[in-house]
Amino acid sequence: MSKNVVILFGTESGNAEFAAEDMAAVITDRKVQVFDMSDFSSENFESTNLYILICSTHGEGDLPSGAVPLYESMKSLKPDLSDIEYAIFGLGDSSYENYSRGSEHFDALLTSLGASRIGEYGRHDAQTGTLPNECAVTWTQEIIAQS
């Protein structure tokens, strides 16, 4: 049976949330929930779900402020995520150093806690002058088809 989907977004300017809503809208064959990372706790991960993370980059390759509490609590509580599958999509701007680094902090942490990433690492570059929505939706459809 295919897993339910939980989309977690980490955002500063709202772009990741805006894209997350469109991503959820194209997943029609199973249950999908969308959470702001600031409303999600590290004890909430369940192996019956596929987690799709979409996260922007703030300042100098840092996490957006709304993503920091979840990141910090996962880092200190070190939950065992060895039965968790996730996919990840990063937002950034290639005209800055540390392009798309925000999401990479999560990717590294999830991997170190035993979770396994599925599919391609999704990316969107704000230097294109577009919002990530279109590109994130296409990527989501590929991830869902593979899972």
Partner: peptide
């Protein structure tokens, strides 16, 4: 700063 300008596309909706 076209990345910042793109936020307008959120508001267009």
């Amino acid at each position: 700063h076209i990345g910042t300008k793109a936020i307008a596309q959120q508001f267009e909706r």
